[in-house]
Nucleic acid binder design. Structure first.
Lengths: 337, 337
DNA sequence: TTGTAAGCGTTATCAG
DNA sequence: CTGATAACGCTTACAA
């Protein structure tokens, strides 16, 4: 390549990177040679030399969960704005697969990482910390103090879930169920806590029969949800703990021939893009997924610039999308204070 | 690293890769050293040396389009099964951004690529061909002969779309509109062709007023759809050309106060995971996205093994999901032959 | 204004 | 059975 332009390799490097003055004539010669040969600098060799890959890794159960798609979208957009590339690996919310995913991504020597930790992900986080890779935790904000060099960003969970319960209580429900995903996730724990607080402050006694979260191979989520309807005194309202659970609940409801909102009220954490367009129009707590993704990337870039930044934890509020999966809006208004 | 284990760097390399016999004692010494230092081989240096990165690139408008999420999911799963990593870039269905995306991914020296070409993507494909990167085209199968070293996989478009029209004609519709995405995409062209064939074979004259595809800045898709309802003789049935269009149509329908299926029948190309659970339950042509994604990866790996393979083009059939967005099923049966 | 040469961390060849 | 050493394709002092 240096040969075809008739110059030295360092000159080529300098014109590509604009890193020192080059006479117009030789610059043109090099540019022409690049054009004609279709030359593209080898990022691998460059990375080996400079120690930076201009790429960042993303590890989450990104693809099984439609809600995460919005995250990935926002993250990709923000990253590519800076000319960085995105390396993606799915953790399937399993600590072991997560560790493997992180290991693989790390081998590519990404400059930074964004991880939606699956609780029990000490192995993966330890590895990240050991290798001193700037990391942003997203969605699930661990309660324990953050490791050095890590930030976290996610949504508020407890109070908004309590508000969902408030809403159901206001319109007269007291047999309220909670259907959550994997109970080891910090988001689930916080939402469940909010659920209990909601019951408490509305004077409703908690009934553990109405709380189900996580699935096991022997008793998977669908079966757990179905059990709710076989109770002697079944729930009249359900709080779905996330996107996936909402779908699961709807499936079981259909299987049992119950309609929303006529037979049972449903509110959910996480919104759907199409929630307005199809019936039942779900009343939901909508996460600002776009902003969370965008800010996660920004925080990462800030940390890339200054690796000694203090660890930061950011919580963003979700917004209450009031639709009619708890019954027609008119009915609610009647009950409101 | 070699020092801490008290051996040479080549020995370390050989124990990591199991590439020649090492005495149990030294092997143990090396393994211990790896363990204690948390050493992780530098993939960058390795790649520079071996010329393979164990990563493959994916360029599609992956994230704006929910339907593609299923592709990405399937692709990621299949790739990680082989221990490869996934580098992702969004093309936003724009040739220029696509070229940039491909360039960036190429700089990372991925071993192969999967691309959902945005028609007009000659630049990107030329670059791929010039750099001799094994490439699989997915979703949009170009009609022209494939470049050397490229395969293509996608769904059948024309006949299935004609079947959608058959269905509408059978239950008595003759004012049938087609709402398609970007008309430059091969999928759109094929589906539109199928739409026309469907009209033809059902003895319905095509009315160009009822065909809208692609949006321009001056006349975006929502406006185009809205115009359909302002016609003197508006459509009584609509064929949505993909996922996104289905949502757009539903939005406009709501804006105009028309209900599905009571006021207008709707069928669509592309299915939704939740289509069974919410009303209207959409009658749809469901793509085997999982299989397409999986086979795309398999084809790529085959080509990685043998770069002189003949170019292959694979078309998979979608399945007709008959639900009730054209009116209750009973009504249809009455009209069926 | 440009060229020379060292070195990034591996793997592969060749000796021993 | 293991160790030197060259080479992968860049960037960056340093020299000219």
């Amino acid at each position: 390549m240096a040969r075809v332009a008739g110059v030295s390799s360092s000159t080529v490097s300098h014109v590509i990177n604009n890193t020192r003055y080059i006479s117009p004539s030789t610059r043109k010669a090099v540019l022409d040679a690049i054009e004609s040969t279709g030359y593209l600098a080898d990022g691998i060799a460059r990375s080996l030399r400079t120690g930076t890959t201009q790429s960042i890794g993303l590890a989450m159960s990104a693809l099984s969960n439609t809600y995460f798609a919005a995250f990935v979208h926002a993250i990709e957009k923000e990253i590519s704005r800076s000319g960085f590339s995105l390396v993606l690996a799915d953790t399937h919310d399993d600590p072991e697969r997560e560790a493997r995913a992180v290991q693989e991504i790390l081998a590519l020597r990404v400059d930074g990482m964004i991880v939606a930790p699956t609780n029990g992900s000490v192995a993966a986080l330890d590895k990240l910390a050991a290798h001193n890779v700037p990391t942003i935790l997203i969605d699930r904000v661990p309660p324990d103090p953050l490791r050095r060099g890590m930030d976290a960003i996610g949504v508020e969970n407890a109070e908004p879930t309590a508000q969902l319960v408030d809403h159901l209580a206001e319109i007269g429900h007291s047999r309220i169920a909670f259907v959550g995903p994997n109970s080891a996730l910090s988001t689930t724990r916080e939402r469940l806590e909010g659920f209990r607080e909601g019951l408490r402050r509305n004077g409703i006694e908690a009934d553990d029969e109405l709380i189900t979260s996580g699935g096991t191979p022997e008793n998977p989520t669908p079966a757990r949800i179905a059990q709710l309807f076989d109770l002697e005194d079944p729930p009249t309202a359900i709080v779905a703990g996330n996107n996936e659970m909402t779908i699961s609940v709807m499936q079981q409801l259909r299987g049992h021939g119950r309609r929303v909102p006529d037979d049972v009220a449903l509110v959910c954490f996480d919104d759907f893009e199409w929630a307005d367009l199809f019936a039942p129009r779900l009343t939901a707590m909508a996460q600002p997924a776009d902003e969370i993704g965008r800010r996660a990337v920004q925080m990462l870039f800030e940390r890339l610039k200054d690796r000694d930044l203090e660890s930061r934890v950011v919580r963003l509020p979700p917004t209450f999308e009031h639709r009619d999966s708890c019954g027609p809006a008119a009915l609610h208004r009647r009950h409101r204070r």
